[in-house]
């Protein structure tokens, strides 16, 4: 292939991931340096941070691809609706994990199960509701009997 041929594709998602990694590394490194500049503090963190940022710089060019029609594409090819489902499930999961203790494990689990089953493709409401209720009860009483910590509950 001649240089300059093909369409330039920017993998924005990959760039965003690298930005997150670089951001976390820089923030951690700066926080460690702000804590203390002593060797006992920075012995591993500083060289590892520098190495991580060098590796990020090495990977950044991989986010820009020239593609030719028919060539194997490295760019992920899910449809927007597929990505939407992932985003919806991730959002529900985030809400579930962060509100468990506030709304109670029983209510949070029941609501998450209903929403997640629907997102994953279960359209029969009677089955969705009955499975979610049965599974919530089983988990609350079954898991609750095994672990040494009580689950905060609202209804059960």
């Amino acid at each position: 292939m001649q240089p300059g041929q093909g369409r330039l594709v920017v993998m924005w998602g990959h760039l965003a991931l690298l930005a997150v990694i670089a951001g976390v590394v820089v923030a951690y490194w700066m926080d460690a340096r702000a804590t203390s500049l002593k060797v006992n503090n920075l012995l591993l963190v500083q060289p590892a941070s520098v190495l991580a940022l060098m590796l990020v710089a090495l990977v950044v060019p991989q986010c820009f691809k020239r593609t030719v029609p028919g060539a194997d594409e490295e760019v992920p090819a899910e449809s927007l609706s597929d990505l939407g489902k992932v985003a919806a499930l991730a959002a529900c999961f985030g809400a579930f994990t962060t509100t468990l203790e506030i709304v109670g494990f029983d209510v949070a689990t029941f609501l998450f199960m209903i929403a997640a089953l629907f997102i994953c493709g279960e359209r029969r409401w009677w089955l969705n509701l009955s499975f979610s209720a049965a599974f919530t009860m089983l988990l609350i009483y079954g898991y609750g009997a095994l672990i040494p910590f009580p689950f905060p509950l609202t209804v059960l």
Partner: peptide, 27 residues
């Protein structure tokens, strides 16, 4: 998988809570 995905996510969340009994695991 439409049943397996939500159930494993919930069981994993309960398991992560069971480690020390705080929200640190689920988050």
């Amino acid at each position: 998988l439409r049943y397996l995905i939500p159930t494993i996510l919930v069981v994993s969340t309960f398991g992560s809570y069971a480690i020390d009994g705080t929200s640190s695991g689920p988050i």
